[in-house]
Amino acid sequence: MGFRAPWVSSFGLFLIIIFLFSANGVVEASSRRLLHRHHHGRGLHAAGFRPAKLFVFGDSYADTGNNKMNEASWKVPYGVTFPGKPAGRFSSGRVLTDFLAKSVGLESPVPYQGRNMEDRRFNSGMNFAYGGTGVFDTTVAYPNMTTQIGLFKQLIDDGTFSAADLASSLTLVTLSGNDYSAYTAKNGLIPSALQEFIVSVVSQLGTNLKQLYELGARKVAVAALQPLGCIPRFTAVNSFQKCNDTLNSLVGFHNQLLRKAVSDLNNQTASSTFVVVDLYTSFMSVLNSTDSTFVDPLKPCCVGVSSRFNCGTVDADGTKKYTVCEAPESAFFWDMAHPTQAGWRAVYTSLSAALEQQL
């Protein structure tokens, strides 16, 4: 389901509009074999790669608590798997940041918004990711990636982090598609304009990656765009049974440009390693597995009782307007846009070996 065609049918354009006006997410189905390898594999830390700290930039696929406490990530039933209560993650539990941190022998870095808590330490780095954001301003009032990097620079300037910290650390950058939903919500969909916008998004992402290098980051892992055509908000139209190849073709165009941008950065910068974390391939590999532990992998665990409501919605009387599946660990998707902890575990298991080789 990779990049297949440079054209999009009229019906495909209609579907893209529906999709891009909604939140984006990821789809995957796990396999027992992959999960087994995750628990018993060597991991990046065991293989010898041990960064001093982990710094994180991006959106809800990496955010571990930066959004305001009135957001869904801080409401029941989010966090039901880990830590057993809402904790600012857009999932039933751990997200990509958590699995990467554990793999390199670190605790998950402190969210930027929690930096002033007395019991917080920065030994593992810091997480600047905010749910709903992109490289440009989106529909949420949170820092875009340039601003996130600016917050990081302030902490470098005031001595919270040093040049030595950066040179010996790993940086994770995620970009999950919020720029595209914000763009089409404002401008509508003109195919040629959207193609130009994809180019501008990847160009800006490349600029942001170079900014991180100029600050001192030397190992940077940047996530490829996941298969957007598979999120539950979109696949609901066919009862969560089938991804949309047209949408995934647009993802392929984005990812082709990203790989070129990363290759150029590696050629232009000295003593640095920029790598692409291939979320697209890992998601689809697990999704297409015939040995899956997930039941109905495109179907979310937590859903509103109707299209008017979302996971975590309650009415004025406190009555729940959502339902939760009996076993979140048997579902890949948590809500209409984000994986469960089990989903993220399967994603990371699938990509960890390749990431280890690149780093």
Score class of each variant (00 low, 15 high):
residue 5 A to K: 13
residue 6 P to S: 11
residue 7 W to G: 12
residue 7 W to R: 11
residue 7 W to C: 10
residue 9 S to Q: 10
residue 12 G to T: 07
residue 14 F to G: 13
residue 23 A to D: 14
residue 26 V to G: 00
residue 26 V to E: 06
residue 29 A to D: 09
residue 29 A to R: 13
residue 29 A to K: 14
residue 30 S to D: 04
residue 30 S to P: 00
residue 34 L to T: 07
residue 37 R to V: 03
residue 39 H to A: 13
residue 41 G to H: 14
residue 41 G to K: 04
residue 42 R to H: 12
residue 44 L to C: 13
residue 48 G to R: 03
residue 51 P to Q: 07
residue 53 K to Y: 13
residue 59 D to I: 12
residue 62 A to R: 00
residue 64 T to M: 04
residue 67 N to H: 02
residue 69 M to A: 07
residue 69 M to G: 00
residue 72 A to N: 09
residue 74 W to A: 02
residue 74 W to R: 03
residue 75 K to G: 09
residue 85 K to V: 11
residue 85 K to G: 00
residue 86 P to H: 02
residue 86 P to E: 01
residue 86 P to L: 02
residue 88 G to R: 03
residue 94 R to F: 07
residue 95 V to F: 04
residue 97 T to M: 11
residue 99 F to P: 01
residue 100 L to G: 02
residue 101 A to P: 06
residue 104 V to G: 09
residue 106 L to I: 00
residue 106 L to M: 08
residue 107 E to P: 04
residue 107 E to Y: 08
residue 112 Y to C: 12
residue 113 Q to I: 10
residue 118 E to V: 09
residue 118 E to P: 05
residue 119 D to E: 10
residue 121 R to C: 06
residue 124 S to E: 15
residue 125 G to Y: 08
residue 125 G to T: 08
residue 127 N to T: 03
residue 128 F to E: 04
residue 131 G to T: 07
residue 132 G to S: 02
residue 133 T to Y: 06
residue 139 T to K: 15
residue 145 M to R: 03
residue 147 T to H: 12
residue 150 G to T: 10
residue 155 L to A: 07
residue 158 D to R: 15
residue 161 F to I: 01
residue 163 A to I: 08
residue 167 A to G: 14
residue 168 S to F: 00
residue 173 V to T: 00
residue 176 S to N: 04
residue 177 G to L: 02
residue 178 N to A: 06
residue 179 D to R: 05
residue 180 Y to C: 01
residue 193 A to F: 03
residue 193 A to E: 07
residue 200 S to N: 08
residue 200 S to T: 06
residue 201 V to C: 03
residue 201 V to G: 01
residue 203 S to W: 07
residue 204 Q to Y: 03
residue 205 L to S: 01
residue 205 L to W: 02
residue 208 N to M: 05
residue 209 L to S: 05
residue 213 Y to W: 09
residue 213 Y to I: 02
residue 215 L to P: 01
residue 217 A to P: 00
residue 217 A to R: 03
residue 218 R to Y: 05
residue 228 L to A: 10
residue 230 C to D: 05
residue 230 C to A: 08
residue 231 I to H: 07
residue 236 A to T: 10
residue 238 N to S: 10
residue 244 N to R: 03
residue 247 L to P: 04
residue 251 V to S: 02
residue 253 F to K: 08
residue 253 F to S: 06
residue 254 H to Q: 10
residue 254 H to D: 07
residue 256 Q to K: 05
residue 257 L to R: 10
residue 258 L to C: 05
residue 259 R to Q: 09
residue 260 K to E: 15
residue 260 K to Y: 11
residue 261 A to R: 13
residue 262 V to Q: 03
residue 266 N to H: 12
residue 271 S to V: 07
residue 272 S to I: 06
residue 274 F to S: 04
residue 277 V to N: 00
residue 279 L to Y: 11
residue 279 L to I: 15
residue 282 S to Q: 08
residue 283 F to W: 09
residue 285 S to D: 14
residue 285 S to T: 14
residue 286 V to I: 13
residue 289 S to H: 01
residue 291 D to A: 09
residue 293 T to D: 04
residue 297 P to Y: 13
residue 303 V to I: 15
residue 306 S to N: 11
residue 308 R to L: 14
residue 309 F to C: 06
residue 312 G to M: 12
residue 314 V to K: 11
residue 314 V to T: 15
residue 318 G to A: 11
residue 320 K to E: 15
residue 324 V to E: 04
residue 326 E to I: 13
residue 328 P to V: 13
residue 329 E to A: 10
residue 336 M to N: 12
residue 336 M to F: 12
residue 337 A to D: 10
residue 339 P to M: 12
residue 345 R to Q: 15
residue 351 L to P: 01
residue 352 S to F: 04
residue 357 Q to S: 15
